[in-house]
Amino acid sequence: MTALVEIDSLQKHFPVGGGLFGRGKKQVRALDGVSLSIEKGEILSVVGESGSGKTTLGRTVLRLTDPTAGAIRFEGQDITSLSRRALRPFRQRMQLVFQDPFASLNPRQTVEQIVATPLAIHAGGSSATEKRERVADMLRLVGLQPHHADRYPHELSGGQRQRVGIARALILNPSFLVADEPVSALDVSIQAQVVNLLLELKEKLGLTILFIAHDLAVVGHISDRIAVMYLGRVVEVAETGTLFRSPRHPYTEALFSAAPIPDPTVRRSRVLLQGDIPSPIDPPSGCAFRTRCRHALPECATVVPPLRQVGPGHLSACIRDDIALQASIA
């Protein structure tokens, strides 16, 4: 396996509270040194609670926001500081599916215009009928009917809109897709359909997907590997089965414990986190999770724990190897 996308200690800081003259000194550390490598053909999920930097990671990898520091390599090429013009050829090969299918489609355009936009930008040479055929093929591929082409987004259901969003993202045959919580705005009954569609398209088109989510049931179903984020850092990465069976970071344990189990007879001991996620403006020293961790030691406050290999393909950023953590029941 070779890496399609390599992310190397990526940082993204947003200035906050800037005055009229000069920028404020305070910064939100949305990404605070994230290193990940996404292998060709895999689905890597990123999970974490709100404000952990998942969405920022997805958008920064696609260079929709400029990173503060670090590097992004796509198919071996460094795209960290390419200009917009230089990025254009890469845009065809990396695409994005959004969380909210109501906001991600232009309400003034028909489905056909929306799905044909990528062709208008990148395939200027092809004729109008050729484009229309490609749009019709794409709509069929995502499970829509040809007559949907003339509809406006507000005439479609949430699931149908999300399919339109997927069609727009895939019509240029990208190799890399960032799916930013693509199903969390949908009804549960529709979620499965869209998740299975993504899996099916991944097989058919040979996609590599960075899947951003917070629903562990969906994540367990779809991903090959999972990265857990907390306050702008990756705290644990492992293959899906390994992570669910033997989590090595206390935060992963707590996250699993918070997931609902669809069986009321099951009793389990919950790992409850105290308090809220700390402010990313002023994160705790050392391990960012130590303020809510029941296994925290004084040493945790001194040094930022690096991601260490704790098993084959299993990385964790916790200094405590001596603790036994609960596996996921789900």
Binding site: R59, R91, S104, T117
Partner: peptide, 10 residues
């Protein structure tokens, strides 16, 4: 998001 989508398309 639809403006971000257009930007992501180059």
């Amino acid at each position: 998001d639809f403006a971000v989508a257009a930007e992501a398309l180059g």
